[in-house]
Each structure stands twice: as structure tokens, then as C-alpha cells.
Design a binder for these strands. Structure first.
Lengths: 345, 345
DNA sequence: CTGTTAGCGCATTCAG
DNA sequence: CTGAATGCGCTAACAG
């Protein structure tokens, strides 16, 4: 008795077991406990065991916040995407998560709703958690955001879009090339009156990049590439069905529709099924993404498949490489895509 | 000259702008800057402006880690789910995210792969970030996990499953009741030889709860409820198609299949479309979830719809209520479900 | 291999 | 309304 109760407790000691408690219990210095938790091989077998027992006995759980403050960094990786309601980003996040989870990093999720100002604010916030690095969708950001990202001296991986210049590392696809690729396929198949159909294209500029590729390729072939139809709904099957009917009404002579994504294209095929419209005989339908549904439809959907999960994995690997000390040049990867020709064209 | 350069810099000062820097620049005490950032109305107009200018001038971004350590809590909400490849959880996370994002909380994402030991470890980890609260899927956890969750003295919301006893708060559905509801529908429709078909049912015990409800209801009606088929693949459309064919082979006299989820059921209908099998004339198909796809199929899928997004929203609201000081009884909410009868039954 | 000392950047308490 | 002093829990640096 005696020296218990230090008598201040100005802050709420909260009662949680601390490193110090464990150290006392094991009869060692706090730093030794710290080492047992973080660098076990720097401690002798004997002390280690003693400490481990104390940890178990007291049910000690490290305060990562304190550790983070002391060592100027937490094992947190913010992932900033435009939306959580779009499957593409979900698959990428899944890939990131799966790759990072066993390395002890935690994902801090942020969504910008396609708003670059919001993105900039979010970047500030998450940087406040002294993350180990950051993964962010897109190559376009506010100037301020880019400055902060560069100033933070931590690995930054920009994903989704592959392009010439990035802040630090980049994994993505060349959207214009995707657009060209599918347009070329349609032309080769003999289609001549082709429309590009999407929804909310202005929100996601990558959609416009694909459209531009599409248009460029058509015009190269001497075909009108300006047929464009879009609306302001979220990309759902229903929206796809509606846009399908609308497109056929707006351009009665149409022989093919190039949709911005598989959700829309699948919705079109489903609508055609319902109405007895024959695809591709009456009209051909093409998509983009390579969603699982695309191959289960009747007719199966021609699409450009993008390895979304793998993109997440690669992004995480780049991050881990940097954290592992890899210096130098930007790590860059064009994750590629694959034209999958099926029955709908 | 003189007192610049304090001459130690043992830790890497990292160079980031700190509260102190801003305070110096504005000629006030650090605490005043702190107040401007956190409780603006406790500071006079004049000082506040001066401080705000300094903040802008230096590009100060608060170190949330330091703040978290000092105040024993960060504005982080861990969300722990079994999987990120299952749409259900994604929708719920989306609801949580949308509700929390404007309140300044960040989601810390964790996935357990349906492993309760992994879950317990993950809980320890995320608790290390001194989160404001925590949202976790399921009502079943390891004893150790429950203890930690109770000991941390922070709001805990258990989601997905609605049940009698929870740690702190609970939002979910009554799975057994869902199973009963659909089974009742099938019986009322006149089906008598009904199979329950799923995949990986042992991984997610909620699936089994639904099956038990299904079986109970059938037996109440004097019908064999033991027809069960499952495999070990992930729930995809393709798996659904395969299970559909397998079920018809295993139970040749079947007149209806009750699938554990819409992915599988949709896959079955898609497979039927391909093969020219008539649903529901040859065999009826029912699902669970209320995925958007379900209503776009031909025939449209009969399903039980669960408000997944709303479940996330409600979970976040419970959390915010607790953080807002709401004490007392467990906050509980049976989010309910809706039987949607369409053409497939 | 182990311990001592100092301080990460901020918010809390208490005083004016 | 403003400021000074103190410590949140842990780890980096430096001895021994």
C-alpha cells in the first residue's frame, strides 16, 4: 500500500490498461514491453515470455493513437473514391482491402460524391490521421489537394485512370483507348449507325474520355460519332432500359448502341427481353466493365472487361512497395482491359 | 535571432505545421488556436479572425492523432463486416457512410471473412484507434470480443440480424421470420415439393436461420421441409444457374426452389432463359434481398426485400444518438422486410 | 539486450 | 474571454 493512487488524474485515465501497467506487472521498463509488441526479436526469450504473460493477464490492447503520435504515423490507409454505390469502386476497394488486411493496415474510407472540393477537404481530414499512405481515385484534383498530397511525404497511389503524370504512383486504365477499342469492334462488325449512351456523364469525366475515344474511332472510319444520349439518373438496370427505348426513339435508324457501362447495357438487354426486341438483329448492344451479369444474359453481352479487383491489388502492392522503402521513379501500371465479344453484337 | 532552433529535434519534427506554429504566427497561445478550431464561439471575433488568417497562411491541418490522444478519442467509426464481396454489406456500409460523412466521422473498414477469431482480433485492433463507437455485423461474437466491446465504454451497434440481446444497440432483420414468410407464400401458392438452395450456408449462420424458418413453416403445413441443397461456391449468377440444374436433377419432382439470395435466384432464372425452361410453369423460383436485378428479369423474381441501405442509415443514427449523449436502454430496431410477389412464383 | 530520458501535438484543467 | 502548466500513452534516441 502506499504509492498506489498518484493523486492527480487530471485527464480521465479512462481506466484502460496501458503499456506502463504491463511493464509494472512484468517488472520491466515500458520500452521493453513496447519492443515485445513491435520488435519481439530485440528482446530475450525470458523477458519476452514474462511480458507476454503480463499482456495476457491484464488484457492489454495497445493504444495505436499514442503509438501513432510518438512514431509520427499510423497504420492507416485512406482510400478516397467518388462513390460507394458504384460497383467498380467497390471491387477495387475489395482488392485493396484483401491485399492490405494481412499486413496490419486498416482502410479509412472516404467518398467524395464526384466533388473535387469535397475531395480536397477529405484529403485534409484523412491526412490528419498521419496515415502511412493514401489511395485516391482519379488523376485530376484541386491544386491545393495536390500540394498537400505532395507535402505529406507519404506514398500516394492514384487509381482508376492511367495517365501521363501522377503525384507518386498510378494504376488504372486508358479510358480513351477503351472507347476506341469497342468502337472499332462495332465498326468491324459492320454497324454504321451507332449511338453512345450513358448517364451522368458529366459527373465522371472518365466516361467522357471513353466517349471521346469512341467518337474519334468512328470518325476515323468516316462514321458519324456524334450520336450521344444521356440522362441524369444513376446507372441502374432500369435506367438502362429506359435509355435503350429512348435511344431507339431518338435515332430510329440506329443499328448499335455503345453503353458507358454494363449496368446500362444489361438493363437494355433485359428490356429487350421483356419487349421481344431481338438483340443484335434489331439492334446491337455493347457495354463496359465486364460485370458477372454480362455473360449470363441472353444474348450474352459484348463488353470490355476491366480487372477491377486486380487494380486494387496492384494499387496496394505499389503502396506496400513504397512503405517497404522502394524509392525513385513513379510506379506506374496500365492494368489493361479485354474486349470480350459475345452475342449481343 | 536567439531563441530560434531549440537545438534538440530528437524526434523527426517532420516539418508539418503545428498548432504552436499557428499560435506564434498569430501572436496568441496555442490553446486559443485550438479553441478557434474546435469551439469558435469561445473566442472573440478579433482573435478568431487573426488566428484564421494564420491558419490559412501557413496551411495548417490539425493533427487528429495528437488531438485524439489528448482527448482520449478520435472521430473514427470502425465498421466490421464479414465480407466486402457481398452486396448486402456494401449497401449497408453505403448507408452508414452517407449518414456519417457530414458529421465528420470517418469509417474504418474491416472485414472478417466470416471468421469469429479474426473478428475478435480485428476488434482489438480497431479499438486501439480509440474510436468514437463501432458498428459490427452480427449478434454472435467470441466471448473475449464481447468483453472488450463492453469494456471500451463506447457505443456499439450490432447490425444485420435483429435479436433478443445485444451489447448496446441493434438494427437488423429477423432471419427466421424471413424464411417463414417466403415459405408461407410458396405454400399458399400451392407449391408442395419445395427445396431450399444456397451456397456456403455454414459460413453465414444467418442463412441457416432463414432455412430453419423455411423448414419450420413447411412442416407446419405438413410438407417435407428437409429438401436442402448447397455447395461451396461464392454466391454468383453462375453458381445460381448450376445449383438450379443440380436441384432439378437431385429432386426431379420439384415444383419450387427457395434460394438463399437473389444472386442465386437470378442466376437460376437466367439459366432457365438460356435453356428454355419455363418459370414458374416448369418450376417456381424465389429469392431473398430485393436486388435491383430481381425486378428486371423475365419473369420478374419473387423475393423478400430488405432495406439494406436504410439499415445502415439507422445504425449510424443510433450511433450518433449515443454520441449525442443518449443514455439508457438498448436502442433496438427491427428494420423489417417486404415480401414482393412477382411472376417467378 | 535493457533501461533512461524526453517529447510527438494537442486538449484538459485550473487560474486570471 | 485568454493563458500556463501538465500529461494523454507510447516510442525514438541515446546510453549502459
Amino acid at each position: 500500500m502506499g504509492k498506489t493512487e498518484r493523486g492527480r488524474r487530471r485527464h480521465k485515465g479512462v481506466g484502460r490498461v496501458t503499456l506502463g501497467d504491463v511493464a509494472k506487472h512484468a517488472g520491466v521498463a515500458p520500452i521493453t514491453v513496447s519492443r515485445v509488441m513491435n520488435n519481439p526479436d530485440q528482446v530475450s526469450e525470458k523477458l519476452r515470455k514474462r511480458v507476454e504473460q503480463a499482456v495476457d493477464a491484464l488484457g492489454y490492447v495497445p493504444n495505436l493513437i499514442a503509438g501513432g503520435l510518438a512514431s509520427a504515423g499510423t497504420r492507416v490507409i485512406p482510400v478516397i473514391v467518388p462513390s460507394l454505390s458504384i460497383l467498380t469502386y467497390i471491387d477495387v476497394i475489395h482488392g485493396i482491402q484483401q491485399t492490405l488486411e494481412d499486413t496490419g493496415y486498416q482502410l479509412l474510407l472516404g467518398s467524395t460524391d464526384f466533388d473535387l472540393d469535397r475531395e480536397a477537404a477529405l484529403i485534409d481530414t484523412v491526412l490528419g490521421y498521419s496515415p502511412s499512405g493514401i489511395i485516391i481515385a482519379g488523376l485530376r484534383h484541386r491544386e491545393r489537394a495536390i500540394q498537400r498530397l505532395e507535402a505529406c511525404q507519404r506514398p500516394v497511389v492514384e487509381i482508376m485512370e492511367y495517365g501521363a503524370s501522377c503525384i507518386d504512383s498510378n494504376v488504372g486504365v486508358d479510358n480513351a483507348e477503351v472507347g476506341r477499342c469497342m468502337a472499332r469492334h462495332l465498326v468491324e462488325r459492320g454497324y454504321r449507325r451507332i449511338a453512345y449512351v450513358g448517364s451522368r456523364m458529366d459527373r465522371d469525366y472518365r466516361t467522357i474520355q471513353r466517349y471521346e475515344g469512341h467518337r474519334e474511332m468512328l470518325e476515323l472510319a468516316g462514321i458519324d460519332g456524334s450520336r450521344l444520349l444521356q440522362n441524369d439518373e444513376a446507372a441502374s438496370y432500369k435506367t438502362g432500359g429506359r435509355l435503350f427505348m429512348e435511344a431507339m426513339a431518338s435515332y430510329p435508324d440506329l443499328d448499335a448502341i455503345h453503353f458507358t457501362n454494363d449496368n446500362l447495357a444489361a438493363g437494355a438487354i433485359l428490356e429487350a427481353n421483356r419487349r421481344g426486341i431481338r438483340v443484335p438483329d434489331d439492334i446491337a448492344v455493347a457495354g463496359y466493365l465486364g460485370l458477372p451479369l454480362s455473360e449470363c444474359l441472353t444474348p450474352a453481352l459484348t463488353t470490355v472487361s476491366v480487372p477491377r479487383f486486380e487494380m486494387g491489388v496492384q494499387a496496394a502492392k505499389f503502396l506496400l512497395a513504397r512503405l517497404d522503402g522502394e524509392q525513385g521513379e513513379a510506379l506506374r501500371c496500365d492494368i489493361g482491359f479485354e474486349l470480350i465479344v459475345r452475342d449481343s453484337t
